[in-house]
Write a protein that binds this DNA or RNA. Structure first.
Lengths: 230, 230
DNA sequence: CGTTGTGAAATTCTTCACAGCG
DNA sequence: CGCTGTGAAGAATTTCACAACG
């Protein structure tokens, strides 16, 4: 397990990097992490803020400001050690924990997510997948067997799941969401095309392809219709 | 600070608001659209900014400010006509056009997206799905047949696709992205876990489940570990 | 009356410019 | 000398408070 105390100069002001990172920066840190991982695979040892920024699609200023929220892990005049920076960003994001993910809904999307290799690579482990359809329950997806959604609560607790991914129809999403929360899960990623209501303390994020396409449509329309000049 | 001047008073029913809408507002307008559609299905005629905001998970102030970018389509003291507002937001977002979507990659995710019913409901039509694997080419997904990725360009042009959804491995994403752009597509939604470089004028959006989970992990870690145990 | 629409304030985010350090 | 880290400036966004209006 990685520890933060290898840093020679301690963080001034107290015991830990408990400082909060702006949401916009957190979102981008995950991108830097991926870029760093790619560089690592290519055998690159050092990287400058300029080239890492370009690989991440952001400006160098933004990158350096974002990294400043994590700590001072670069060397002036040289750049950043790829592996060292990678490790510290991962630590700041909480990727040293083991996150156990349950996927609720074994339809096309749920199965696609369960088989998606990107999870395991960075501390996420899919520990269960559920469906309400008895035709699907018991079938194999990847190296998991589909559990009956009726047993949601006991299976969540037995597997120790602390994150849930909802890949199910809008009509049942809120109900399942409530049950997942009642079972103790406090981090939820929803693919259901509906706004979910969650109590305070529960973290919910939403991924929605219809929304994304509509945003694209807006920009495409503006580009096509040069109505801006009046 | 001379920006583009717009007409002082937007006339309802006339030429649409050519003014540009802030990106953050555009993203939320799609959510209001969905909430309004749900209300319509429930037979609700009128809605106040307060209840629509709650259904959308935003504050009433934010909602009203967002709607003000679209136009003045409410009645003071009463609220908004659901159908009327719905139609005007859709128009502002460019959802009156017919958008033809091509899905590139017929793996688990690509097939899940092709079968996802949410597209057709709002002006999006999936007109083609591609894969490079000859074992998959020719098979049926929904009511489409998988085309050979080798024929990307001619099929895109024949079907008139003006949007592309990339559901393929990181390794080939940039190459396919370049080809799709060369074929004339200027709006791309990528599910590939990689940063894609696109020329100016091309609109790219990214959906990334690994990123979303990592953001959740950050917040979950903070909630669990308020005072860092060092 | 009750609710919208909107200037203005408050907050957050991005960019700039350069000091500081290897 | 070159690149990082950061305070300060500049933009963008959100929130507030209330005038306008049916």
């Amino acid at each position: 397990m990685t520890s933060l105390e290898s840093s020679p100069h301690a963080v001034p002001g107290g015991a830990g990097p408990a400082k909060q990172i702006p949401p916009a920066a957190v979102a981008r840190l995950t991108i830097y992490l991926r870029a760093l991982t790619a560089l690592l695979a290519e055998g690159v040892d050092r990287v400058s803020s300029e080239s890492l920024a370009e690989a991440s699609g952001v400006s160098p200023s933004t990158l350096r400001k974002d990294l400043s929220h994590v700590g001072s892990y670069g060397t002036r005049g040289v750049g950043y050690d790829v592996q060292y920076l990678n490790r510290h960003i991962a630590a700041a994001l909480g990727l040293t924990h083991d996150w156990k993910v349950a996927i609720v809904g074994a339809g096309n999307l749920g199965r696609a997510l369960a088989r998606y290799g990107g999870f395991e690579s960075r501390g996420f482990e899919v520990v269960a997948i559920f469906d309400a359809d008895q035709m699907v329950v018991g079938s194999e997806v990847g190296w998991l067997r589909v559990s009956d959604a009726a047993n949601l609560e006991p299976v969540l607790q037995r597997t120790g799941a602390n994150m849930a991914v909802l890949a199910l129809p809008a009509a049942v999403a809120q109900d399942v969401c409530d049950r997942v929360i009642a079972a103790g899960v406090r981090s939820i990623l929803s693919f259901a095309p509906v706004v979910l209501q969650v109590p305070p303390g529960v973290n919910l994020r939403k991924v929605d392809m219809a929304t994304e396409l509509q945003i694209l449509a807006y920009h495409a329309q503006r580009a096509q219709d040069p109505a801006g000049t009046d």
